[in-house]
């Protein structure tokens, strides 16, 4: 009889233990079983959610056995370097969001060219802004671009049409003034590099030098506006074509034409500022988070290209400082080397 009564009692006590969680806190934070899958099934009140958010990272790292030293996250206004690693997930999301908005301000929205039209939108950043304009006839697009429609202008400068080269240049110059200069800088750099090459082929060295100086001017102008499209176009071309190691060696051209370059740069900046003033346009500087993400991105772009960056650094313009090797950049480059 004793046994008959003892067994249900044990079962009942067992049931009680199961029903009472060890504390009223969410299990994920301090229960014995750290498996988030199990713990997240526990109902979470909105009151708890904020606390959960701040603790989530630390707890998940604890469960994977990472030492407490590595758990430290840098505050958003602190001296963080690698956003993904150093910030909490919520801070990282905030920084990413701020950066996305900055990219839209710069007019970074990729059109789909040729075969890429069959790809999903996720393959081209912010394509949704320019996709409707790609449906227009060339004439309609041109009319809209000339009327000053920002996204029409951005679509137009990406058309890559040789026949429209001069018109694209006109629109690109307008975009420079407006501040939506991502694709404008990209096109102007590409256009000048191509012109330098064409003139070098015809042995018009002065002209080709002049176009190289223009190309570098646009790269530096882009950097001054926290835009990397010019630098990508520049490095993409000079590292892949022999002509840029020889006749069009940028290092040599910079050294031999330093004053012309500086005059060119100052004139361009002066023209842009004057036009902005006339049209009451003020270029907005990005916030600190975006600037830090830009530094991170530059580390990726510059990685393994010290030789080609050297000339740009020697120009000693304010934007050149963005290309200097910082502790952050070294860390990111080291990480890149490890993933290779």
């Amino acid at each position: 009889m004793k046994k008959i009564i003892a067994i249900p009692t044990i079962i009942l006590l067992g049931a009680l233990v199961t029903m009472f969680p060890r504390s009223n806190h969410i299990c994920e934070l301090d229960c014995d079983d750290p498996s988030p899958k199990n713990n997240l099934k526990t109902p979470v009140t909105s009151k708890d959610k904020a606390h959960l958010e701040s603790e989530k990272t630390t707890t998940s790292l604890k469960t994977t056995g990472v030492t407490s030293e590595k758990l430290k996250k840098v505050p958003l206004d602190g001296n963080w370097c690698d956003a993904k690693k150093d910030l909490t997930p919520s801070d990282f999301d905030l920084v990413e969001k701020a950066n996305e908005d900055w990219q839209v301000y710069l007019g970074k929205a990729f059109t789909k060219r040729g075969n890429a039209v069959h790809l999903g939108d996720e393959h081209h950043d912010n394509n949704q802004y320019v996709a409707p304009y790609q449906e227009l006839s060339p004439r309609e697009l041109e009319q809209l671009a000339y009327s000053g429609d920002k996204w029409a202008m951005i679509t137009f400068v990406q058309s890559g049409s040789f026949k429209q080269r001069d018109k694209m240049k006109q629109i690109a110059n307008k975009l420079l003034i407006s501040g939506a200069l991502y694709h404008s800088i990209e096109f102007l750099t590409i256009n000048e590099l191509a012109a330098a090459k064409s003139n070098a082929r015809l042995e018009k060295i002065d002209k080709s030098n002049h176009h190289m100086i223009n190309a570098i001017t646009y790269v530096m102008l882009g950097l001054q506006h926290y835009t990397d499209s010019g630098l990508i176009a520049y490095l993409g071309n000079i590292t892949r074509n022999e002509i840029y190691q020889d006749i069009l060696d940028p290092q040599r051209i910079i050294n031999e034409n330093r004053q012309e370059f500086l005059d060119n740069f100052q004139n361009l900046i002066g023209d842009i500022n004057k036009a902005r003033e006339e049209q009451s346009i003020q270029f907005e500087e990005p916030n600190l988070f975006v600037k830090k993400l830009f530094e991170e991105r530059l580390a990726i772009i510059q990685y393994g290209r010290d030789k080609h960056i050297k000339g740009l650094l020697e120009l000693a313009l304010p934007a050149s400082s963005l290309l200097t090797q910082t502790t952050c950049k070294r860390l990111i480059m080291k990480e890149l080397a490890e993933t290779k």
């Binding site: 890559g160 590409i190 990726i300 990480e335």
Partner: peptide
């Protein structure tokens, strides 16, 4: 020359995106 410049810019853009994604 213009189309080559576009192409080489495209190659580098592909490489940058790859590096960004692998780093993430």
């Amino acid at each position: 020359d213009l189309q080559e410049a576009y192409r080489d810019n495209g190659y580098d853009s592909c490489a940058v995106v790859k590096a960004v994604r692998i780093k993430a």
